[in-house]
């Protein structure tokens, strides 16, 4: 049996001093729902684990300067129950609801999900569509802020330096007229890893009936989630209609063709994404009672 050490910082100051001693075999533990499996599967018996869960300064959701600040230790259950997220970030709430099961959502954290950087991570797709930024700290106590895309490398790797940790997720408060939706396809409804996921944020002008701004993020199609400008352009400046839904689906099929042509999952995903498109589109426009997708 090897030697395993646990460090349990209780505040940011203690966390920073733990980060000063980071080595090759140092693991950051947040909720643990991925790390427990990873350490067991890879038969890792030696090293140091820094348990972030005791750092109280990383456990809050608040709104300041038109930014929703989400502490990295916030669990998916806490995201689902939060009023600011419900009001302003529907797609993030919907993504959180589709993560794992009740038991996993009670432990798994948003900071952990981002650091783990799985291609199918539900929260990353939603946060990318929302234009989230990531705030963190390093072993010198220096605070940094980066784009989400700069933090996630993909394929279960992040771009954080070994002595860096995510402390907060910043989601800009979108103004009036903005709304969002998230959709996911997996092999079953719960406890499922996304085969495809998508988050769409739009600004809809109710007077003119025109989509004035749009961001489409796609997950599980590439090593990491990405924003599709091609699909976004199809929706931009358009009015919701049956024809628009068809164009939206066709643009998504083209995106799947480019992303994974030749892969075993390609024939399935190019059809499946049209169903996902319909779900997300209907969620966005049904509530507005203009009958866009039906």
């Amino acid at each position: 049996m090897g030697n395993f050490h646990i460090k349990t910082p209780n505040n940011i100051e203690e966390l920073v001093s733990c980060l000063k001693e980071v080595e090759d075999k140092t693991y950051l533990l947040s909720g643990g729902t991925d790390l427990v499996i990873k350490l067991r599967k890879n038969k890792i018996y030696t090293g140091t684990m820094i348990d972030l869960s005791g750092v109280k300064e990383m456990k809050y959701i608040k709104v300041e300067n038109d930014i929703i600040q989400i502490g990295a230790n916030i669990t998916f259950s806490e995201i689902i129950e939060n009023k600011y997220i419900s009001q302003h970030c529907t797609c993030l709430k919907e993504a959180a609801q589709r993560v794992g099961s009740t038991q996993i959502r009670n432990m798994a954290t948003i900071g952990g999900n981002i650091s783990n950087a799985a291609p199918c991570a539900d929260s990353i797709t939603a946060l990318m569509a929302l234009g989230a930024k990531i705030k963190g700290i390093n072993s010198n106590g220096e605070v940094w802020v980066r784009e989400l895309d700069e933090v996630v490398l993909g394929a279960e790797k992040n771009k954080l330096a070994p002595d860096e940790v995510i402390t907060e997720i910043n989601v800009p408060l979108l103004g009036g007229g903005y709304k969002s939706s998230f959709g996911k396809i997996g092999s079953r409804t719960a406890v499922t890893i996304a085969k495809l996921n998508m988050a769409v944020v739009i600004k809809y002008n109710e007077i003119d009936g025109v989509i004035e701004d749009v961001t489409v993020a796609l997950g599980a199609l590439a090593p990491k989630a990405f924003i599709s400008n091609t699909v976004g352009k199809v929706l931009l400046s358009e009015k919701p209609s049956n024809e628009l839904l068809v164009n939206f689906k066709n643009a998504l099929i083209q995106e799947v063709d480019i992303a994974i042509k030749g892969r075993a999952s390609h024939p399935y995903k190019r059809i499946a994404i049209t169903g996902l498109a319909e779900d997300v589109y209907n969620c966005l426009f049904k509530v507005m009672e203009i009958g866009g997708g039906n």
Partner: peptide
């Protein structure tokens, strides 16, 4: 409710 198989004891 949590999965005790996904939690290190020290958590």
């Amino acid at each position: 409710a949590v999965n005790s198989c996904l939690i290190f004891a020290h958590q």
